[in-house]
């Protein structure tokens, strides 16, 4: 089971939710920090890192002896990563998105692919929680290949929680793609509402099951609630605006351990998510229901 924690707007509480949910689920959890441009799960869980591997994209390496400057590769490349010049060919590795198309279309078989590292994938443990973190190298503009490398480590026998990057661009899509449930975290502000609506559009386009969590409830107005009602969205939880939560977060503490009054809230949300996953699974697979009835 894969549950992605996402949002349109940044700073709504994705990491807070992901970390505290990880400690509130009944089954063993693996937490994937897919916010590779600014991973921060480790600041709260302090996992012991047991391994770290470089991840990157395959970029073309052209054999000048074989290349006839036919231009097929440059023609195919949508990112202008290959310049066909009058006297030779030039590869701009930093523009390449690693699709591999150039190597496929080359009629002379002159293109080999080589790995260009863009970051690292670290994995380790924090108590019972498995933690995998993607860390993009400073200056890199292309995050999705690294996010996919983090996703590739998803466990088959644990509940996988994904801390997604904010926004609705390629990075967010790469992080939530194929998940069983997307939890969209928002706040009751005009900015929160605007970006929630964008995120809802994105998950609907991907046909992913999703629900909404309103964080800092009571701090703004009712427009996010009205929007959720009008759109018939599954409101999974409302987490009240609470200065003690902000203080605890700022100190890098885990809420369910530091502020005991928050524990029932996250456990209730974890149950809601588990129930929703079970319900969606039954709906998708009615034969399971038949078996249960027998």
């Amino acid at each position: 089971m894969i549950v992605a924690i996402a949002s349109g707007k940044g700073g709504t509480g994705k990491t807070t939710l992901a970390v505290n949910l990880a400690l509130s689920m009944r089954r063993p959890v693996q937490l994937l920090d897919c916010d590779v441009e600014a991973p921060n799960v480790h600041l709260f869980l302090h996992p012991e890192v047991v391994g770290s591997e470089p991840a990157g994209i395959l970029v073309p390496k052209v054999d000048g002896e074989r290349c006839t400057l036919c231009g097929d590769c440059g023609e195919l490349c949508q990112y202008n990563a290959i310049a066909i010049l009058s006297n030779g060919l030039l590869v701009f590795k930093e523009l390449c998105h690693g699709c591999g198309g150039c190597a496929r279309v080359c009629p002379e078989d002159a293109i080999r692919e080589e790995l260009r590292p863009i970051g690292v994938v670290e994995h380790g443990r924090a108590g019972d929680v498995e933690v995998v973190t993607g860390r993009l190298n400073v200056g890199e503009a292309l995050a999705p290949p690294l996010i996919r490398a983090v996703r590739a480590r998803a466990s088959r026998d644990r509940v996988v929680l994904i801390d997604a990057p904010p926004g609705t661009s390629c990075s967010m899509i790469a992080a939530i793609h194929g998940s069983d449930l997307v939890v969209l975290v928002t706040e009751p502000t005009p900015f929160g509402l605007n970006d929630l609506a964008l995120a809802v559009e994105a998950v609907r386009a991907l046909r992913l099951p999703f629900g909404v969590v309103i964080n800092r409830a009571g701090s703004g107005d009712r427009r996010v609630h009205d929007y959720c009602t009008a759109e018939g969205l599954d409101l999974l939880a409302e987490l009240p605006d609470d200065r003690r939560v902000a203080e605890s977060y700022a100190r890098g503490h885990v809420l369910v351990e530091d502020l005991h009054h928050t524990r029932p809230m996250f456990e209730a949300l974890a149950r809601r998510i588990e129930d929703r996953l079970a319900r969606d699974r039954r709906a998708a697979n009615p034969r399971d229901v038949a078996c249960v009835r027998v």
Binding site: Y79, N80, A81, A83, I84, L85, L90, F92
Partner: peptide
């Protein structure tokens, strides 16, 4: 979307 300069340089070449 990116590499406009590369594209222009190719055209000049």
């Amino acid at each position: 979307v990116q590499g406009a300069g590369v594209q222009a340089a190719e055209a000049v070449s």
